[in-house]
Design a protein around this nucleic acid. Structure first.
Lengths: 235, 235
DNA sequence: ACTCATTTGTTCGTATGTATG
DNA sequence: GCATACATACGAACAAATGAG
């Protein structure tokens, strides 16, 4: 692991276990440089990451202060998978693969997903259950030229872990949109919508580090179970 | 303006006017350092900002490439005000101030807004109209100990511009949440909801650079007119 | 009002590591 | 193997904001 990542993780943990409590001032940059035996540039890179996470706030001439981060609960603000997002929250989600089949991208699908026509794709429908209610339906399309060897077993667990650890591919970035739509046939068939007549649709276009689109996903959420939170800085 | 900001703005403009077109490789860091007469650290700081914006993607050993950014339309991914967000999009929004009055924060309001009880607040309700339809209701609470001199005239224009340019205060960061709720009394009274029985609620807690909360806002959007888009990087 | 030490912010230069072709 | 290009790390200097004296 890189040095700045080590420092970042160490400070992050100290904030999490409150040995650096919210509201407190952390040691000065020069002090931390000594503690971690690093240059100021390296330390500041770690602090930058913590600031982006909303964990600390630097004040010119005063010092760096720990923010109260308890308020951010289930953050979608970074690019993480469903499995990753839930492994540390105490909630007990389960995943069921309702559909898993190969197909070729046609013109209609191309305009929705952004894949070129004729691209071989794996189509997945996965249902997420919380407290015996199916509240999320994830519809994924993966480019199987890039993501090879995907199967139902992997889909049950974490596809992102498979892509990075098994295939050794680097995930780069994603574009995302959030909107509210009428339920489609899948939603009506599979989700426990009860009285709700709309769903929150989160669309994701995910690219490898070399800029190639490898995944298009639509997550359909029951509106009462959807909260998106994020932290943003003024520039 | 700082040197890295100048470089950032210049490159951003070249991408916007397509003298650096999507898909193209931009000059190497060393070349750009010569062009801008700056160090590599300074140049990389500018490139970092462009990368966060989703405008470029760096590939180790290959170069830096311009991404296709047309796909991000109405981004709320950064911390900007309604007026700022709309000044460059061609749409013709109008703002109407429906309510503007001073009050003291009571216990109930304190738990919602995060302000301490007894804090003097200005409560604002502003309606945003697009094509003769009222589709957004913004309910703001400003701490008037910090944001002094606010009035209906300023609320009609841009409060953020007033805070930064007139009061010379520095806005630091915000926490935000997005969820779907049943319409409240204001929504039913003021918005053109037609057949919709829900609204998208965006809550914002906004802090000055010194970490003090100065604004709590709820934006209520008609669901069919709400799209939130953002760009995220894998870390 | 002024000085001064402290602390963060910006910029430069240099060296080395690592991925690509 | 080699040149190119981005990534990481170190050190140094000065600027700018803050707060204490």
């Amino acid at each position: 692991m890189k040095k700045f990542e080590l420092i970042y993780n160490e400070l992050k943990q100290k904030i999490a276990n409150k040995s650096l409590p919210a509201g407190s001032k952390i040691p000065s940059e020069n002090q931390l440089c000594q503690d971690f035996n690093c240059s100021r540039g390296t330390l500041r890179k770690a602090l930058e990451l913590l600031a982006q996470d909303g964990l600390i706030n630097a004040q010119h001439g005063r010092g760096v202060f720990v923010l109260d981060h308890e308020q951010i609960t289930f953050s979608f603000g970074s690019l993480i998978s469903f499995a990753e997002a839930n492994q540390d929250s105490g909630s007990t989600f389960t995943t069921e693969v309702a559909l898993c089949r190969n197909l070729l991208c046609d013109a209609a699908l191309a305009s929705v997903t952004g894949f070129a026509a004729e691209t071989p794709l794996l189509k997945l429908l996965r249902l997420r259950t919380l407290n015996n209610e199916k509240i999320i339906a994830d519809l994924n399309y993966f480019n199987t030229n890039l993501i090879t060897g995907l199967n139902q077993d992997i889909a049950q667990k974490s596809i992102y872990h498979y892509i990075e650890s098994e295939l050794k591919l680097k995930i780069g970035f994603a574009r995302r949109s959030i909107e509210v739509c009428a339920p489609n046939d899948y939603d009506l068939k599979y989700l426990d919508l009860s009285q709700f007549n709309c769903v929150v649709v989160v669309k994701n276009w995910v690219y490898l580090a070399d800029g190639v689109l490898f995944e298009y996903t639509e997550s359909h959420h029951r509106p009462d179970k959807f909260v998106f939170t994020e932290f943003v800085r003024r520039r």
